[in-house]
Amino acid sequence: MNDWDRFVFSFFNSDVIEQYLPSIVDGFFLTCLLAIQIVVAGIALGLVLALIRSLKFTPVDLLIVLYADLLRALPPLVLIILFYFALPSVGISMSGFTVVWLTLTLVLGAFAEEIFRAGIVSIDKGQWQAARSTGLTHIQTLISVVLPQAIRITVPPLTNRTIAITKNTALGSVVGVGEILNQATTAQSFSGNASPLMLGAAAYLLLFIPVVVFGRWIETRFAWKRQ
């Protein structure tokens, strides 16, 4: 074998690819499933917390700020390890999938809360006053007048943050969640061949290139103006 043949044999081996393609496809769908559940739950959590904070009830506000600070300051992998390996010793056992979902949902919730909050605060006081003077209640003003304007300016930062956090689903491979990376490394060690890694890379490109391009489009579409 010359060098080129050896390279093709190690990285683009058709036999190995054929054998492990199904498991990479499984991993692809699991990554999608996990990502969708994180995005939906995390953004909903962030929005609810930001709405609660806008009611300005100090003790609850402090708790939310503490939560958001902790989850933004700690590396997600530390939390995953803590939840997966340490919680069982106090009788709380969760599957790897649940741990990753819970951790990343809490992390996204923390970032989303801060972004929604910044959006709500950025809306001019006059909007509140005008809406209240037409007879809307505080909650009605928030939902019908302030939020629709606030959400518009939160779209670009929220999109970027959400994309970054969904990519963290790869951390699931550390606690045995059969997502793309886990399937690829398992197949690589079984086959002693790097082709499954190339398959995994292709799966990530297939999944995230459209997402990254979408993020770029969002950024120009809703240009986030700074004063």
Partner: peptide, 19 residues
């Protein structure tokens, strides 16, 4: 940007030795 950082790391660590 399409690759999760952990994926890049694992590929460099586990894949490059094959080359």
């Amino acid at each position: 940007r399409a690759f999760p950082p952990l994926v890049l790391l694992i590929f460099i660590h586990a894949g490059l030795p094959f080359a």
